[in-house]
Amino acid sequence: TETAWISLVTALHLVLGLSAVLGLLLLRWQF
C-alpha cells in the first residue's frame, strides 16, 4: 500500500538526516 511506502521512505530520510548530523558533530569533535 502507499501509506506503508510513505512511512518507510520518511523513516529512511530521518535516519539519513540523523546520521549526517551525527557525522558532522563527530567531525567537529575530532578537529
Results as ranks from 00 to 15, higher is better:
Thr1Pro: 00
Thr1Ser: 00
Thr1Ala: 00
Glu2Asp: 05
Glu2Phe: 10
Glu2Gln: 09
Glu2Pro: 13
Glu2Ala: 04
Thr3Pro: 04
Thr3Cys: 06
Thr3Trp: 15
Thr3Met: 08
Thr3Lys: 07
Thr3His: 06
Ala4Tyr: 12
Ala4Leu: 14
Ala4Trp: 08
Trp5Cys: 01
Trp5Arg: 09
Trp5Asp: 15
Trp5Thr: 10
Trp5Ala: 08
Trp5Val: 14
Trp5Lys: 09
Trp5Glu: 08
Trp5Gly: 01
Ile6Gly: 11
Ile6Leu: 10
Ile6Lys: 06
Ile6Cys: 01
Ile6Thr: 09
Ile6Pro: 14
Ile6Tyr: 09
Ser7Asn: 14
Ser7Tyr: 06
Ser7Glu: 09
Ser7Thr: 08
Ser7Ala: 02
Leu8Glu: 06
Leu8Tyr: 07
Leu8Val: 05
Leu8Ile: 11
Leu8Thr: 12
Val9Asp: 06
Val9His: 11
Val9Ala: 12
Val9Tyr: 11
Val9Gly: 08
Val9Pro: 10
Thr10Val: 13
Thr10Asp: 08
Thr10Lys: 05
Thr10Cys: 14
Thr10Tyr: 12
Ala11Leu: 08
Ala11Tyr: 10
Ala11Thr: 10
Ala11Phe: 13
Ala11Arg: 14
Leu12Tyr: 14
Leu12Trp: 00
Leu12Thr: 10
Leu12Cys: 14
Leu12Gly: 08
Leu12Met: 01
His13Arg: 05
His13Ser: 09
His13Pro: 15
His13Ile: 15
His13Glu: 07
His13Asp: 03
Leu14Pro: 05
Leu14Glu: 06
Leu14Trp: 07
Leu14His: 02
Val15Pro: 14
Val15Phe: 03
Val15Lys: 02
Val15Asn: 05
Val15Met: 01
Val15Gln: 07
Val15Arg: 03
Leu16Phe: 11
Leu16Gln: 02
Leu16Lys: 03
Leu16Tyr: 02
Leu16Arg: 04
Leu16Val: 03
Gly17Phe: 06
Gly17Tyr: 07
Gly17Ser: 03
Gly17Asp: 05
Gly17Cys: 02
Gly17Leu: 04
Gly17Glu: 09
Leu18His: 03
Leu18Lys: 14
Leu18Phe: 03
Leu18Thr: 11
Leu18Ile: 01
Leu18Val: 05
Ser19Pro: 11
Ser19Ala: 05
Ser19Thr: 04
Ser19Ile: 04
Ser19Tyr: 10
Ala20Gln: 05
Ala20Lys: 11
Ala20Cys: 13
Ala20Glu: 06
Ala20Gly: 06
Ala20Ser: 14
Ala20Arg: 13
Ala20Pro: 11
Ala20Ile: 12
Ala20Leu: 07
Val21Pro: 15
Val21Ser: 09
Val21Ile: 09
Val21His: 11
Val21Gln: 10
Leu22Trp: 04
Leu22Asp: 11
Leu22Lys: 02
Leu22Val: 12
Leu22Ser: 14
Leu22Met: 03
Leu22Thr: 14
Gly23Cys: 04
Gly23Ile: 08
Gly23Glu: 11
Gly23Tyr: 12
Gly23Trp: 12
Gly23His: 03
Gly23Asp: 05
Gly23Thr: 11
Leu24His: 10
Leu24Ala: 14
Leu24Ile: 10
Leu24Cys: 09
Leu24Ser: 14
Leu24Pro: 07
Leu25Tyr: 11
Leu25Asp: 07
Leu25Glu: 11
Leu25Ser: 09
Leu25Thr: 15
Leu25Phe: 12
Leu25Ala: 13
Leu25His: 03
Leu25Val: 13
Leu25Met: 03
Leu26Asn: 08
Leu26Lys: 14
Leu26Gly: 15
Leu26Ser: 12
Leu26Val: 10
Leu26Pro: 10
Leu26Gln: 08
Leu26Tyr: 15
Leu26Arg: 07
Leu26Thr: 15
Leu26Trp: 02
Leu27Cys: 00
Leu27Glu: 03
Leu27Ile: 08
Leu27Trp: 01
Arg28Trp: 01
Arg28His: 08
Arg28Cys: 10
Arg28Asp: 14
Arg28Val: 11
Trp29Lys: 00
Trp29Pro: 01
Trp29Asn: 00
Trp29Glu: 01
Trp29His: 00
Gln30Ile: 02
Gln30Arg: 06
Gln30Ser: 10
Gln30Leu: 06
Gln30Thr: 02
Gln30Gly: 15
Gln30Pro: 13
Gln30Tyr: 04
Phe31Leu: 00
Phe31Val: 00
